[in-house]
Nucleic acid binder design. Structure first.
Lengths: 193, 193
DNA sequence: AAGCATACGGAACAGTGTTCCGGTTAGCAA
DNA sequence: TTGCTAACCGGAACACTGTTCCGTATGCTT
């Protein structure tokens, strides 16, 4: 009975699975070479597919970026509780976690810039980062707050946004290094005056 | 003798002077409405001129942006020495001056973002800000350094870049306010630990 | 008034994102 | 194996933006 139900194990056709995988590999390669703003056609060419195939699998560019970096975002998010347990203090844990976040951002051409972009196409990227990482940051920040190590009243979203902003352009301007500025921001967070 | 030497007082034709003025007014208007990334055609339409006229007067977009905001950048730069003289301490003067800078940036849609852009078209904009404002910032920073109020080894360019970065998106994200983060950065600058 | 350098307008070109549809192919059934 | 159908693919086509170029119009000087 019923119509065709062409399905592989996960419900998609085999060629679709191949295309998606090829696209992810291609995107990762092109992002390294040209940044996350690389032309859609470049990614399609690298993957050996048409541009239509990209839009079918990843309706917005953010979806593609999210998929490419999902594992690393996940790893960063999951590292939070561990740092809180192992570090000498909640504030230290927060510092170390933000170090991880900064490491992630500055090694991806233009990712930090895309993150803050008001471009609607990147809204989903922004949303994913916020949903996954802000709660982790909030946990660390709360712990540091309770231990009295940081000034109160700082919002986790704003802090992450500030750190992310400081990382913008760190990969394309030799005169600018984001880490000292992030260090200043965190030092200011600790100061009670 | 010799060839034509058509000159008004300043060496340009009257219609060229009019066009340039109309373009500056139009650009200022459109920048408020659509940000500094507004389409060239919009600015041309607002000014009632053709796009060619824009490129003739302002070869790069940065030239136009610089021209539109020149007065305000100048005012900010010139305020530096005065603040140093009137404030209770060099560090206070630095804080107040950076307040001026932040005020300027957050009230211009997308200006902070354009400032950090690696886009070649904005290189001249970046250069102008750096040339005009970094020396002023360096003067204030040096004074604060000599008075022992700030941690040593901070570069004026990097500080300005950091503050500029923190202002990115402050005009388009209701959840983000750049000022507290700039406050944190400056607090970190004062902390000696 | 005449002539010419200057300035103007907008068509034309190039690069990019996005949509859409005719053709192809994978998977299932007979 | 063969045939059918839904899913999938490729790339042409469209829309929008930056940029260039040149025939035309304008204003200055003589």
């Amino acid at each position: 009975m019923g119509v065709q139900a062409p399905r592989t194990a996960d419900g998609r056709r085999a060629d679709a699975v191949r295309s998606r995988s090829a696209l992810l590999d291609a995107a990762a390669t092109v992002f390294v070479r040209s940044g996350v703003d690389a032309p859609v056609r470049d990614i399609a060419a690298q993957a050996g597919v048409g541009v239509g195939t990209i839009y079918r699998h990843f309706p917005t560019r953010a979806d593609l970026v999210v998929a490419v970096y999902r594992h690393q975002v996940e790893a960063c998010a999951e590292a939070g509780p561990g740092l809180l347990a192992s570090a000498s203090s909640p504030y230290t844990a927060l510092m170390e976690w933000i170090d991880l976040f900064v490491d992630f951002l500055v090694t991806k051409h233009g990712l930090a810039a895309a993150l803050r972009s008001d471009d609607a196409g990147f809204a989903a990227l922004h949303a994913h980062f916020v949903e996954r990482l802000v709660p982790v940051c909030a946990g660390l920040l709360d712990a540091a707050d309770r231990s009295g190590e940081v000034r109160p009243g700082i919002d986790a979203y704003q802090l992450m946004r500030g750190v992310g902003n400081l990382c913008i352009g760190a990969d394309s301007d030799a005169r600018y290094d984001a880490r000292p500025m992030v260090g200043l921001l965190l030092a200011g967070l600790r100061c009670q005056d």
